[in-house]
Amino acid sequence: MTVVISAGIRAVLFDLDGTLIDSAPDLGAAADQMRTDRGMPSLPIDAYRPMAGAGARGMLGVAFGMTPEHPDFLTYREEFFCNYEARMTRSTFLFDGVADLIGALERLGLQWGIVTNKSQRFTIPLVASMPVFSKAAAVVSGDTTPHAKPHPAPLLHAAQVMALAPDQCMYVGDDERDIVAGRAAGMPTVAATYGYLGSQSDTSQWGAQAHINSPLDLLQLLRTA
């Protein structure tokens, strides 16, 4: 792990799924219900987990081999959304160490926030269901701005909400598009290799300035002024 983060950092922004929360069980179950409703055999959660960070596209790809170009994709996606909405807090949990990490950031006097590609339809109730997220200085969803990651707009919006320059914010995520978005926004970036796509990819090729193998590893990258 390379320590590169300077005392100029005033906030840490996080991706949500695969970085702060393990939502794979609920995402996978929502897609798997579609299989069993059609008389197809259930798949194990481990089949869904690697693609949980890709949302409906990833889950439908695993469950049905379906891509967004499929003529039924939008219909299947809405069915998946309804299934997920009905159960999205049932088996979703913080990754070990996340609550302690957030507490430590607050003790250091750092702001923190969430920037996810999840739509507000899911982000708002999910974040509200977890008390640890109540002090987030910014919560930006995939449809908060006209563009989702890997476009930098959501990250720039979060920085604006916190009244900070982009280079005063660090972005942490488990998907290459998180790192692409962070770099485009001018933020130091950290790859969460314990996350969904981080665990399945060569994260050294993403261009992140640092890598962490667990949430609490992030504290080793921070120096206070």
Rank of each mutant, 00 (worst) to 15 (best):
L16C: 12
L16A: 03
L16E: 00
L16Y: 08
D17A: 01
D17M: 08
D17I: 10
D17Y: 00
D17T: 03
D17N: 07
G18M: 00
G18A: 06
G18P: 05
G18H: 10
G18E: 10
G18W: 02
G18Q: 07
G18L: 10
G18I: 00
G18N: 12
T19A: 10
T19G: 04
T19K: 05
T19L: 06
T19D: 06
T19V: 07
L20Q: 10
L20S: 04
L20E: 01
L20H: 01
I21Y: 06
I21N: 00
I21Q: 00
I21H: 02
I21M: 02
I21V: 14
D22Y: 04
D22K: 06
D22L: 00
D22M: 07
D22T: 03
D22A: 07
D22P: 02
S23P: 08
S23T: 02
S23E: 00
P25A: 00
P25H: 01
P25Q: 09
P25S: 01
D26H: 06
D26S: 03
D26Y: 02
D26W: 03
L27I: 13
L27S: 05
L27W: 06
L27Y: 03
L27Q: 08
G28S: 03
G28F: 05
A30M: 01
A30R: 10
A30S: 13
A31R: 12
A31C: 08
A31I: 03
A31F: 11
D32R: 07
D32M: 04
D32F: 01
D32H: 08
D32W: 01
D32L: 00
D32G: 08
D32S: 11
Q33R: 15
Q33I: 11
Q33M: 14
Q33S: 14
M34S: 09
M34R: 09
R35Q: 10
R35V: 08
R35W: 09
T36G: 08
T36Q: 14
T36N: 03
T36Y: 04
D37W: 00
D37T: 08
D37Y: 04
D37E: 14
D37A: 15
R38V: 03
R38T: 02
R38F: 03
R38P: 07
R38G: 08
G39N: 12
G39Q: 08
M40N: 07
M40T: 09
M40W: 12
M40H: 06
P41L: 05
P41N: 09
P41I: 07
S42V: 11
S42N: 10
L43F: 04
L43Q: 09
P44G: 11
P44E: 09
I45S: 12
I45N: 11
I45R: 05
D46W: 10
D46G: 15
D46N: 14
D46K: 15
D46Y: 06
A47Y: 12
A47D: 15
Y48K: 11
Y48R: 06
Y48G: 11
Y48E: 10
R49T: 13
R49M: 01
P50R: 02
P50M: 11
P50A: 10
P50F: 05
P50E: 09
P50H: 12
M51H: 14
M51P: 01
M51A: 14
A52E: 07
A52F: 07
A52V: 05
G53Y: 04
G53M: 05
G53R: 07
A54H: 15
A54Q: 15
G55N: 13
G55H: 03
A56V: 13
A56G: 14
A56T: 13
A56N: 07
A56P: 08
A56K: 06
A56I: 13
A56W: 04
R57V: 15
R57I: 15
R57M: 13
